[in-house]
Amino acid sequence: MIELFGVFLLALAVITAIGVVQARNLFAGVMLMGIFSLLMAATFFLLDAADVALTEAAVGAGISTVLMLSALALSGAEEKARSRSRILALIVVTVTAATVIYATFEKPRLGDPNAPVQQHVAPWYFDMTQEAIEIPNVVTAVLSSFRGYDTLGEVIVVFTAGIGVLFLIGAAAPKGRASPSQGDLPVGLKHHQPIRVVGKLAIPFILLFAFYVQFHGEYSPGGGFQAGALFAAAIILYGMLEGEATALSIIPAPVLFAMSAGGALLFGGVGVVCMLLGGNFLQYDVLLAGSPVGAQQMGIIAIELGVGITVAGTLLSIFFAFATRDQS
C-alpha cells in the first residue's frame, strides 16, 4: 500500500515538474516548483530519509521559493520568448535518457537489502556510532563526524553563495520608510490584519522549533542546516509581515554577515583546535582528555552550532539583499 502511495507521489511530482517547465507565467512556475519540492520531501520521508525530507521542505519548498519570488519581483514574471533550438534539446535529452534507462536494468532493485550500497561501509557506520559516538541519529553522526569534512565544505559553499550575492547586489540597506520611492505604499503586509495576527502568532513557534531542531539533532531528525533554515524562515516571515526595514532594525545586515562568517569560523576553529591538541583536522576525540565519546559529542554540538549560525545568517543576508534591492 505504502509503495503505491509512493508511486502516486512521484507521478504527481513528474506532472508538477512538467507544469513548471511549461508555465508561461513564472510566478505560477515558482509556486509549482514549491509544490514539487513538497512532493519530493514527502517521497524522501517514505524512503526513510527523515532528515532529507525536513531539509527539502525547509530549503526547497520554503527558502528557495521565497528567493525566487524576490528575484521575480525584480526581474519580471512573464516568460515572453518561445523555446528555441527545441529539436537539438530534444535529441540531447533523449540520448541522455536512453543511456540511463539502459543502465537501470542492471541496477539493484529498490529496497534490496543485499545491494552493494547496503553492504560495505553502511553497517560500519551503525557499529561505530554505537561504539564511539553514542548518539541515536546515525545521519547526524555521519554528517558531523565521519564525514565532517564534507559538511565543513558545504558550510563554505553556503558562505561563498552569501559573499557572491552581496558582491553582486550589495549588502542589504534598510529602505522602507526612509525611501521616497516607497511613498505611502503599504510596507509588508501591515494592512492585512488577519494575516498579520496569525502570522505573528506562528513566529515564536517556528523559532522554538528551530532551536529544538538545532539542539535535538543528535536524537531526532534535524541539525544545523534545518535549524538555520527554519530560523531564517521565521525572520523572513516577520520581515514580510512588518516590512524588511523593521526586521533589519532587529538584526542589522552587518550582524547577519558576521553570523555567516562566524559560523564557518567556529566550525573550522573546532578543526584547528583538534589539530593543536594533537589530533587530525576535525578529530573530535582529542577535545576532552580521557573521554573520546564525550569529546565526539561535544565536537558535534559545536560544529552543528556553527552550521546553524552560518546557514541562518547567510540565508537572511541573501533574502534581505534581494528584498531591499531598489526596483527602479
Partner: peptide
C-alpha cells in the same frame, strides 16, 4: 535504511540552494 546517501544529499541540497541564490543574483 542507509544513512550515507542521506548525508550526501543533505550536502547536495544545500549546494543546490547556494547555486540558485547566486544564479538569481
Amino acid at each position: 535504511s542507509n544513512p550515507l546517501p542521506q548525508v550526501l544529499i543533505l550536502t547536495a541540497i544545500v549546494v543546490g540552494i547556494s547555486t540558485l541564490a547566486l544564479g538569481l543574483a
